[in-house]
Simulated scan of single mutants.
Amino acid sequence: MSRIIAGAAGGTTLASVPGSLTRPTTDRVKEALFSRLDAFEVIADARVLDLYAGSGSLGVESASRGARAVDLVESDGKASEVCQRNADLINTVARRKVVSVHRSKVESFLDRAQDSVRWDLVFLDPPYPLDEPALAAVLAKLLPHLAEGAVVVVERSSRSAEPSWPDGMERFAERKYGETKLWFAEPGVEETGEEADAAKDAGPEVSG
Score class of each variant (00 low, 15 high):
Asp120His: 08
Arg85Asn: 09
Leu130Met: 15
Ser116Val: 10
Leu110Phe: 09
Val99Asp: 10
Gly149Asp: 01
Ser164Phe: 06
Val99His: 12
Ala147Gly: 13
Pro129His: 11
Leu143Lys: 12
Asp88Ile: 06
Phe123Lys: 05
Pro163Val: 09
Ser75Asn: 14
Glu148Cys: 00
Pro126Gly: 13
Phe172Ala: 08
Glu81Pro: 00
Glu148Gln: 04
Ser100Thr: 10
Val101Ala: 05
Trp119Lys: 02
Val73Phe: 00
Ser158Cys: 04
Arg118Phe: 04
Pro187Leu: 04
Glu179Met: 03
Ser157Lys: 01
Pro144Tyr: 09
Arg175Ile: 03
Arg96Gly: 07
Lys141Tyr: 11
Asp167Asn: 12
Glu170Lys: 10
Leu121Gly: 02
Val99Arg: 10
Glu170Asn: 05
Leu146Ala: 01
Asp76Lys: 09
Ala137Cys: 06
Cys83Asp: 07
Glu174Arg: 15
Arg112Ile: 04
Pro127Ile: 13
Pro144Phe: 07
Cys83Ala: 04
Arg171Glu: 11
Pro127Phe: 12
Ile90Glu: 08
Thr180Val: 00
Ala79Glu: 01
Phe109Met: 10
Arg95Met: 08
Leu135His: 12
Pro187Phe: 06
Ser108Gly: 14
Ala150His: 03
Ser157Cys: 02
Val152Ile: 13
Val117Lys: 05
Asp167Cys: 05
Thr92His: 14
Glu107Gln: 14
Ser116Phe: 03
Ala136His: 15
Gly149Asn: 00
Val152Ala: 05
Asp120Lys: 00
Val122Lys: 07
Val154Gln: 05
Ala137Gln: 14
Val98Gln: 06
Val93Ser: 08
Leu146His: 01
Asn86Ser: 06
Leu110Lys: 12
Glu162Val: 14
Lys105Asn: 12
Trp165Val: 09
Ala94Gln: 14
Lys176Phe: 00
Leu130Ala: 09
Val138Ile: 15
Ala94Gly: 03
Ala87Pro: 13
Val189Trp: 03
Ala113Ile: 04
Arg171Ala: 15
Phe123Met: 05
Leu142Trp: 14
Leu72Ala: 08
Glu148Tyr: 00
Glu155Ile: 02
Gly168Leu: 12
Arg85Val: 12
Trp165Lys: 09
Ala161Lys: 13
Leu143Thr: 08
Phe184Tyr: 11
Ser108Pro: 05
Ser100Glu: 12
Tyr128Asp: 10
Asp131Lys: 10
Val98Ser: 01
Arg85Ile: 03
Arg112Asp: 10
Phe184His: 03
Thr92Ile: 02
Phe123Leu: 06
Gly77Asp: 06
Arg175Lys: 15
Leu143Glu: 13
Arg175Phe: 03
Glu170Gly: 08
Gln114Leu: 04
